[in-house]
Write a protein that binds this DNA or RNA. Structure first.
Lengths: 125, 125
DNA sequence: GACAATATGTTTGATAGCTAACATTTATGT
DNA sequence: ACATAAATGTTAGCTATCAAACATATTGTC
């Protein structure tokens, strides 16, 4: 994935934000953190990079001066059109396993993750 | 994991290198890249951080002036003694799943990873 | 021995992520 | 209305990665 994007100077998370803006449309910056499951601060930095490259605009909202609406610039729309189709990654990677195997895998990873979270939170308290 | 280490100002990879030096003993820097499955350059940066903190020494080899032997300093040994036991993470996270479930999980993830690698390499050529 | 190839480590300049602290702005509570 | 709390975004400083270019040192080959 990184390899397909590198020639265009993009990283995976930058791609995902462009994907959001190109597919769903203009989006509040606020919404990206829960969507991508990363911190507000990280969103801020990555959006800055996209703005610096002239691919995305931050338009302050009229109703709430804190919030900024993100929108593709013409250059951003143009570049999006040139990008290869990366959706296959999510679709094909797991395509020919049985549903049972996929369910098992998801269950094991989910349970292990939760177990570690509980354990670490316990240690902290 | 990061949380348990943060009070000591260490990251996961730094911890792993200390673990290697404390458990196995002095190690050539060269060996760490394949061991941790990261790049030479990354090893160099992380080792630099440990050296800067005074926890690790880089001793140039006599036989081959390029190679550097990594060794804990007294401060490094001391800090290692104060660190909580993090080995439980590797041991307990997956401890009460059946072997069959673990095998399925490993197989699915391994195959998916390989498939993506092939796909991306194919695209590049 | 001399020259080319390989191995080792570092540096530079990216992306990506985190926490903590801060400024603004909006919303709440009394 | 006024003070306090919560939401939003940014910045600073850190870890972790990578690729590409570079400096040395060691090994091969001729």
């Amino acid at each position: 994935m990184e390899e397909a994007l590198r020639p265009h100077g993009l990283g995976a998370t930058q791609w995902y934000i462009l994907h959001q803006l190109a597919t769903i449309g203009p989006t509040m910056q606020r919404e990206l953190a829960p969507l991508l499951q990363i911190e507000r601060a990280t969103v801020s930095i990555i959006v800055s990079a996209l703005v610096r490259k002239g691919l995305v605009e931050q338009v302050p909202s009229d109703l709430d001066q804190r919030q900024k609406l993100l929108r593709l610039t013409p250059a951003g729309t143009g570049l999006w059109g040139e990008l290869p189709d990366l959706a296959f990654i999510h679709d094909e990677a797991f395509s020919d396993f049985s549903d049972a195997d996929l369910e098992t895998t998801a269950r094991v990873l989910r349970a292990a993750t939760e177990r570690l979270n509980h354990r670490l939170k316990g240690k902290k308290a």
